[in-house]
Design a binder for these strands. Structure first.
Lengths: 232, 232
DNA sequence: CGCTATGTTGATCCATATCAATAAGTGTGG
DNA sequence: CCACACTTATTGATATGGATCAACATAGCG
């Protein structure tokens, strides 16, 4: 892997505290690859060969059953995915595909497990990362079980707005089709949900969302830190 | 804590490989308590003070939002809960209450974090536990998003049957009301779902379920290891 | 520039929720 | 040990959120 790609990976909480020689070891075995859109990176059920780090672009984790398919998570730079499968040496529970052209670092799972066993700092970081992942899924599940489609969308928009620094307008980052699957609804339903939010000051033009008065939307969405705060 | 309670805790994957002196340290600060049914052990949003180990009885993890409440997980002996919050020193994302009279070991979170930092074997075990928890939630979420109520129930019954060693009859372990919340449906709906399963050879009497011909039910449920196998 | 996939909108259907009434347990205190 | 109160489970009737089907618009792309 190229030198210049180290810093952004090194800066990830997962790798920040790791001993230099161990980080070197990980990077030596790692591949940096650029993928076109719509490439299936991993398939659920396959053995976990690599830990993936999205450096650029976007990836979706999805799952299928009985002919149905849903989006489980949307992954944006810089973050890792499938840490759990890598650590447990278990088959992937989700598939992954690129949404756009993406640059991804692939670190062999056995290297991860080796350094994990040898480097206490890395072990701690893996734990923090896993605990984080766990909490993300729990929050997502809470949203699915406790909110209806409109509420999930409203809160998603507020989260995106916050992620964009509170700007009055921001981009959706993903196709509405995929967003609908992520939010647990059909595309048609999402479209109607957007219209239902108009009275609350939400204006949508393509992938651009403009929230006139956040307070209005918040009254509907009732965001909770225990579901919506990514830092908690 | 009493000597005689050690073995079953020590035998847990989470504690099995830990150094004797560290395990001693954990147990010295731990409390073994017996709680009556319906006691709220922890409340979502509270700081995580203790790692909990259910030694006897049953506990449900639940979450609430905007006046609604749902069951996130059912915890039976011997297992731990809220490892993630303990490790991250973050607020609980879920509340917990006893379903029956329960014996629970409470280990101060700061002790867990201290031993975690000092004992590599324990750190590894925590990671394995967390990865396991993560995968459990992911599977649950997949079920919620990819299956309808009837399918979720059918698969739940098959899982319970497997957990009971494949016996033709087994107990539900929890009130139907709570099971319905866990499966993401209303009690009325669960009741009707049970009746819908009669043609598939499912007989319910109180909390006892009898599956005449598993093959028949399997055809409907289409269980998948990536959703239903607890070991994967 | 046309082809194809995505998004929107309307009509309709269906699964699930809600409301209501009753039955069946379960626990408590006399 | 039974009667009473209260919770849970069931069943039926009805409402509704969301899915499906269909048609069309639009946007991205070769």
């Amino acid at each position: 892997m190229l030198e210049r790609d180290f810093p952004e990976i090194r800066a990830l909480p997962l790798f920040a505290e790791i001993a230099p020689e161990n980080f070197e070891a990980l990077m030596r075995g790692a591949y940096l690859q650029t993928f076109p859109p719509q490439i299936e990176l991993i398939r659920e059920g396959d053995p976990s060969d690599f830990l993936h780090v999205v450096v650029e672009g976007a990836v979706e984790l999805f799952a299928a059953w009985n002919g149905r398919e849903t989006v489980m998570q949307l992954v944006h730079p810089v973050s890792t995915f499938i840490v759990a499968a890598t650590i447990r040496d278990a088959p992937y529970l989700m598939s992954a595909r690129t949404l756009e052209r993406a640059r991804i670092v692939l670190i062999p799972s056995q290297d991860i497990r080796a350094v994990f066993a040898a480097d206490p700092a890395f072990a701690r970081a893996v734990v923090a990362e896993l605990a984080q992942c766990y909490r993300v899924v729990v929050k997502h599940t809470k949203g699915l079980k406790l909110r209806n489609g409109l509420e999930r969308l409203a809160n998603h928009l507020l989260r995106q707005r916050a992620a964009a620094g509170g700007a009055p307008a921001f981009e959706l980052e993903v196709e509405k089709r995929r967003l609908s699957a992520f939010l647990g609804m059909t595309p048609e339903n999402l479209s109607r949900a957007f219209r239902s939010l108009e009275p609350y000051g939400v204006k949508v033009d393509g992938a651009t969302v403009r929230i006139a008065d956040p307070a209005e939307l918040i009254r509907l969405a009732r965001p909770s830190p225990l579901i919506d705060d990514s830092s908690v």
